[in-house]
Design a binder for these strands. Structure first.
Lengths: 182, 182, 182, 182
DNA sequence: CATGAATGAGCCTTCATTCAT
DNA sequence: AATGAATGAAGGCTCATTCAT
């Protein structure tokens, strides 16, 4: 019971942090703003997170599409089903302005935090290659480049969602272009 | 004469600003840092630019690939030559860490400055559509999505350059996939 | 039984406080530091001592050489034996860096706490005079000044122990100079 | 002219710092208090001194009796005249509560700043020995101990000035005891 | 053109203290 | 008897900006 109260407060702070960070960026946003948004005192934020940086790192982790990869890879899919899963999960995760903004802020600030830098590297290299292999049953450079095109278009979509194209249409087209079943 | 001195100092400030902003991000970087890098006083920066925001906007403009579009469109190219021109100019512009960093910081902060927000919108919609039309001789949604894939992959390349693939190979592969001449 | 547990915890806090206060000074040291050193929670310190000031006062009392005076005076000594007792007890009490540091911090902060201020006054005037009378069988100004020289040299010794002189040599010399038996 | 304005402001800050530090101690006193006392903004204090520590060190240097030693040694005095000079200069320097308080605070905090720690060491060892040699024409341990008694009594006098004894009487008595002309 | 001096606002962080449990 | 959670106040420091010179 008391433990859940604990978690509720912490989660409230995290939610508020996402809101504020996504609106103002990590360094323009201040702990004061987050505390006000969360309805707690500044000092309490330092009780749960030892420093602003620690809080930033926590939010960065949630902002990156690591879970998207994990979810789809754990389903043991392959070929276009894996692509489709990734696209759907990805666009789902970033289907609101909040997550879209926090993603780009995270990409911008990521390299300043070794922990986040590593996760980004892993995402862009190791995981991308793994997915490429699962999807195209090949680890040729072409497969790898195709995966980059795939996530490049999804990123584009997250940064500036196209207004006159539906999500499904977008996904279908991309997959059609990149994955023509033999 | 004095006018050219003017320009030299102003350009030095801009160069220093790019260096500092790209390293620390727009809001972590301070005018003091830029002044030190440029070897001038803080106050002088305010003489050339009325505020930090004005300086930021100046840098943002230089950070976006607007010139890339302009250069290639002005050459009246079409089809794969236009794609190739865009890819080369783009990867050329962002072939150093300085420009790569400043680009991502600009994307992150862009929406806070109406002027930059508009440029970004224009890039991602109007210009993209124009290019799509020139390249594919069509303004179908598919052409538009292809262009997004094209720039998505280039952006990916700017954010995290792949280590084991040459620029030429990358460009050729993308163009081959997106543009199979009938 | 529980009462002795009481005392053990309280004493542990006091020991930790001496350690921390002597290292950082009364106001640079925080309750958190003391709690960590003692292995208890901050709140518990406030259960035993109602405020930081109360704890400081407790430590101040232990830091001053009041017990030195009391011990030697209670022995009903006089003349040089009393001087010798005082010197030995004094140098004994402050023969480690911990006590030396806490003494000087106490002298510095003493005047801020009326209780400590009074003790200091009493030490420097009433007790000094009493001792002067016992030692020199006289309450002339000269006796009083001699006592100040006596404690002045001991204080000097506590603040900056001389490296190449043994404690005994130091004490003997001082006593010889101040107390030439007729 | 402008230069003197500069110096005036800096000196005003230093004076205010002495006032505030002597009243509250180095770490209880805040930059805000000093700024208010000096009638300037907090930020201006950081313009003249890069940090609170830098300001503290500046004040510490002024608080120690280094100048007392220098003044008297430069006069090429010896024997009791040198003692008398030192005593007078010393008691002169610390003849007001401000300087008395700042001295004890400096002794307490000195060891935290290497620069001050070294000065204190130098005062208590090198300079004391030099003076001992000049005064007693000998560098025996006894001369050294006598000098410690001398400064010990002066320090005592600075910490708790005796109320019913005049400065002259005090000085004369000390010198008579320590220095009996052959 | 250029700068040093000045400031108000704000930032991150820590502190002493309290209170429910 | 003991603690984790909570807070208001304050601390040192930096920042963008201004202005007299």
């Amino acid at each position: 019971m008391t433990d859940s109260r604990h978690l509720i407060v912490k989660e409230k702070i995290i939610e508020s942090a996402i809101k504020i960070f996504s609106k103002y960026g990590y360094s323009n946003a201040s702990i004061r703003m987050i505390a006000e948004e969360a309805g707690v005192s500044k000092a309490l934020i330092f009780w749960y997170f030892n420093s602003k940086d620690e809080l930033i790192i926590e939010i960065c982790k949630r902002a990156l599409p690591i879970d998207v990869f994990e979810t789809c890879l754990s389903k043991k899919l392959d070929g276009s089903s894996l692509l489709r899963c990734l696209a759907n999960e990805y666009l789902n995760k970033y289907n609101n302005q909040l997550m879209r903004s926090i993603l780009i802020h995270t990409l911008a600030v990521g390299d300043m935090y070794p922990e986040i830098h590593n996760k980004l590297d892993s995402l862009c290299n190791k995981m991308l290659k793994e997915v490429a292999k699962q999807v195209f049953k090949s680890d040729s450079k072409e497969s790898f480049i195709k995966m980059r095109m795939f996530f490049g278009s999804l990123l584009c979509c997250a940064l500036r969602p196209p207004q006159d194209i539906s999500k499904d249409e977008y996904v279908n087209t991309i997959i059609k272009i990149l994955y023509s079943e033999p």
